[in-house]
């Protein structure tokens, strides 16, 4: 049976400079389409991609990723910033892999641009006042 999944991959620093995604296609026959990536050598990385292929291959591919310390997470639907709760502390800006959350200067206000958001969910647990809301 064919499956297609949109997933978020979290790479540990050691895994980012290995050709992991290439192996997925070569050894596991999976078709991938990278939607967003922020992976640079020697740092923790994050990638959002569509992955499709045979169910059994997908499961084996997922196992291969986990074995290399890569975390898999299904992509959620929607992220919102609740401006009534946000205190402009900036804690989310540091963890956002894209430029969806930015600090405007010199006002030092935190701005959220939904178009840049890859919905990785990183900002949600990191916000101290639960201002970043996840909707499935």
């Amino acid at each position: 049976m064919k499956v297609a999944h949109r997933i978020v991959l979290h790479f540990p620093p050691a895994a980012t400079d290995q050709p992991i995604i290439y192996r997925l296609s070569k050894d596991y026959d999976l078709v991938f389409n990278i939607l967003k990536a922020s992976v640079s050598p020697q740092e923790e990385g994050l990638m959002v991609l569509d992955l499709s292929g045979e169910e059994a291959d997908y499961q084996r591919g997922a196992e291969y990723l986990r074995k290399h310390g890569v975390q898999l997470q299904p992509l959620v639907q929607d992220i919102r910033k609740n401006d009534d709760r946000c205190v402009d502390c900036g804690a989310c800006v540091g963890v956002c892999p894209t430029e969806a959350l930015t600090l405007e200067r010199p006002s030092m206000r935190v701005l959220f641009d939904p178009d840049q958001c890859v919905v990785c969910g990183e900002c949600v647990p990191c916000c101290p006042v639960e201002a970043m809301e996840l909707r499935f």
């Binding site: 620093p13 740092e43 804690a91 540091g94 990191c126």
Partner: peptide, 18 residues
């Protein structure tokens, strides 16, 4: 260090990442 750490100063990325 080589891993993200979680502190009272917030989440700190590895290898001087933040």
């Amino acid at each position: 260090s080589d891993r993200t750490i979680y502190t009272y100063m917030g989440t700190l990325k590895a290898q001087l990442g933040s």
